[in-house]
Amino acid sequence: MIRHILSRLLTVPITLLLVALVAFVILRLTGDPVEIYLDINATEEQRQLLTAKLHLDEPVLVQFGLFLGEVLRGDFGESLQFGGPAMPVVLERLGATLQLVAAALTLAVVLGVIGGIVAALRKDRFADFAISGLAVAGQSMPSFWLGILLIQLFALHLKWLPTSGTGGLEHLVLPTVTLATFLLPNFILITRTAVLETINELYVTTARAKGAGEAVVVLRHVLPNAINPVLSFLGLQTGRLMGGSIITEAIFAWPGVGSLMVKSIFQRDVPIVIAAIFVVAVAIVIANLIVDLLQSAVDPRIRLD
């Protein structure tokens, strides 16, 4: 088990190095930083001074090395909009994003697993058609469109919930539902397939032959064996989830990393964008690590091999 964790941890720095490389390339592709930092009336002397200060006159490899050094110190440069260092600005917004993502993920996983189990147990019956049908429909629905529809219905017409922003729990409802709907259909369909594959296993018959009732059969014998594909999918989808979070935050003016990122892209505030990409990448890496550990906790064949 410990060896398994260590071997997993070993891949983390490699992943982050690759992220740094991509971020660096993007940074250089977005145009000459000097043009971004200085206004149009800057003198040639000012330009040269800034070029030297940003080490833009050094070879690219050296620049990348310096960039890596800065990244390791958490120094992503000065934000153009906020004036201060970029990283603290991003980290300040991280809490709101994590809150939204955690709420959406919990909703999607709980409803998805329950829905998938019910659909599988009622295969080819009405409940299965209803649940699977909704899942397929939900899968084909873009989340920005759903978000706007939800705002129309619940905020504008019924006036039950606020249109956007933060505050109490009521502000969390619509963005959570929007983001959860983004993942829920896949969780339903994957759980359904996994349960159907497991339910005909001989050990499920053994459980029944022991005198287990349906609840014990499903929860203790089927689910632990069916949950691994769901977890794998969860790991694979964290990237999509962060992407979905960016759109959702933008729709609902949710003050998280996503909406900050969108705003900064429009403002060409490159240090903030790079810092945000880094934070998102680290979050994805950590999420995958957690999924990995969860999987080996559920299935002894993974942790003991």
Partner: peptide
């Protein structure tokens, strides 16, 4: 259900697949 596993039991051909792997 009260009889299964208590008054009457069953074993199968494939002992690996008849035991729960987790």
């Amino acid at each position: 259900r009260k009889l299964r596993g208590r008054r009457m039991s069953m074993i199968f051909q494939e002992p690996l697949s008849s035991l729960n792997p987790v």
